[in-house]
Write a protein that binds this DNA or RNA. Structure first.
Lengths: 336, 336
DNA sequence: TTGTACGCGTTATCAG
DNA sequence: CTGATAACGCGTACAA
């Protein structure tokens, strides 16, 4: 059995109160006794019990993070950022894999509640009413990451997808492209789907370029297979397309792969720009130009916000993170 | 403030003991009172405090997992498997990102100790003496995942790298290749480095094929850049190579990329087989044939073992997980 | 400067 | 079947 504060007290011939004081470096003891106690702690190899501490302090130094999918590069970059900041600030993070499943999500929320986590980061998904209500009752800080809520006043950290998409398309336009198509993810997705389509449309419209329904291949998801299918579809709908904006890197990579099979050279025959700038963007042939989301930093920021909220900073503002273009070689500059 | 068992007891006009019994569905109460209590619980929306429970039960239903790198597909597949099983068995998982840093690792171990986690899964790295000793003192189950220890009797879950490498090379041989090179990771790495080289050498030797130093490009790591550099090096050392065994998928992808730039066609001019079978293997051009490690299942198994150990199963045996070949299109079958 | 004693929310051991 | 009550390990008024 592990030693307790009592054992230390006994060994050092002091009361547990004194030991506690020294442990939490408060004041109220002589250097003398401090040394005595420290020595006892050392000798016993005593380590305070965070559980007992949590019970009395009503603070567990643990936060919960919910992911719809764990094994995606995106999630892990976020997680890495969260974990780093949390650890720096003395907290641990419990990961929860919801699979976008309502029941599972509620189960996790129950769990996190019983474990009395200090805060929750909810990522990459719509915050349903049920979730929100429950977390409200838990009465702990909540931050949305890589998602946002129109329905509830919850601070979030994300890029402005509409503007980011606009920027990506604008980049294509500035390279001289005019017939620009898009392979979009699920257009019912109000977070990552619709805004990116709107951004695309905004840009095309602003620059006086045509873009009707035949310019967009609306897929069901944001995966590699959506990219392979998407490109075929788009090519059928818009044979003279010279550049495509893919709503995710996975889609973009799928498109590149599909293009290769179709004998379409990238970027010579067709330019492609991705979205997310995952590690994979560096590994494709050609390396993929992509709209970069700063996932790691977003994770850091979200964790930071949780702690600010815990510290009572009443009104934390949401944070729109800056996007940028990671320029590589999948987009051809067209001569005028 | 959240309600406590006391509030429930009061509301239901029973003692906290009775409430506790019902909560933990033990016996010793009438259906009558059970209903009363359940109603009170419902009305108050009471949720037991896992911290208080942990204090008295000496069980936190939490395990800690240490990763040297979080944002790698490999780690996240492992994590996903661990998380799934842990959750099924009623536990949460705390992730720790050590960055292969001794000090950070010890700090995390301290933390996990203070948090009184029920067990620890240590992944993808050498278990140093310092770590082992500390965890020994913690006196909780420890399982090694995707690594093993020669120095200490700790159960592990991993594939047999030497045999797996052998299998990969054998596959190449069976496709008719004879001039087979290898791009290896760090040969000082006793877990993922050396055994794979040995497996390669074993296979070449068993089939009477030549394989001296010029057949191996020994790189520093297992990354994409090691693959790009590795291929160039190998091509210089062994100009007539027809197939290469890459010690990781990242290396393999780098090699493919490098080959492309060098005007070497894969698989027509050069066959490449990877190692790990990450998601990325599906996305390359051509899709990468790779030696598959069942990461997700390995994570599941490791978690399972932790719980078996917690349940007192004294001697848990290590588990060598089966590898396989994920056949895609990066290896050419040579005519006899 | 130091020690006593109570409480944090549970579970478990006794009596009744 | 039920209810006090003592732990669990620690922090902290309060007293000394």
């Amino acid at each position: 059995m592990a030693y307790t504060i009592k054992d230390v007290a006994k060994k050092a011939n002091v009361s547990i109160a004194t030991v506690s004081r020294i442990l939490n470096n408060q004041k109220g003891y002589s250097e003398q006794t401090k040394k005595k106690v420290l020595k006892a702690i050392e000798e016993l190899d005593y380590h305070p019990n965070a559980i007992a501490r949590g019970l009395i302090n009503k603070k567990t130094s643990t936060i919960g993070v919910l992911f719809p999918a764990l094994s995606s590069m995106l999630a892990t970059e976020l997680l890495a950022g969260i974990e780093k900041t949390a650890h720096e600030l003395g907290s641990s993070v419990i990961v929860c894999h919801t699979e976008s499943n309502g029941l599972k999500t509620m189960k996790y929320l129950q769990l996190l509640n019983e474990k009395r986590v200090d805060g929750i980061i909810f990522t990459s998904e719509i915050l349903k009413e049920e979730y929100y209500e429950f977390i409200q009752k838990m009465n702990i800080p909540l931050v949305l990451l890589s998602t946002e809520s129109r329905a509830y006043p919850v601070p979030y950290v994300k890029v402005d997808d509409r503007r980011a998409a606009y920027a990506a398309v604008q980049y294509l336009i500035k390279q001289g492209h005019k017939r620009i198509g898009m392979i979009s993810g699920n257009d019912q997705d109000m977070i990552a789907g619709k805004p990116r389509i709107e951004g695309y449309l905004d840009a095309m419209s602003d620059y006086g370029l045509p873009a009707d329904d035949s310019f967009i291949a609306r897929m069901k998801g944001f995966k590699f297979s959506d990219g392979t299918e998407g490109l075929k579809l788009l090519k059928k709908q818009l044979p003279d397309v010279t550049a495509v904006f893919a709503a995710s890197d996975d889609i973009a990579v799928g498109a590149i792969s599909s293009a290769y099979r179709l004998g379409i050279r990238v970027p010579d025959d067709l330019s492609i720009i991705g979205y997310d700038n995952l590690k994979i963007a560096d590994m494709t042939i050609p390396p993929l130009t992509s709209l970069a989301q700063p996932f790691y930093e977003m994770g850091e920021k979200a964790a930071q916000m949780i702690f600010d909220l815990m510290d009572g900073d009443e009104l934390i503002e949401s944070r729109i993170m800056p996007h940028s273009i990671a320029e590589r070689n999948s987009v051809l500059k067209l001569g005028s």
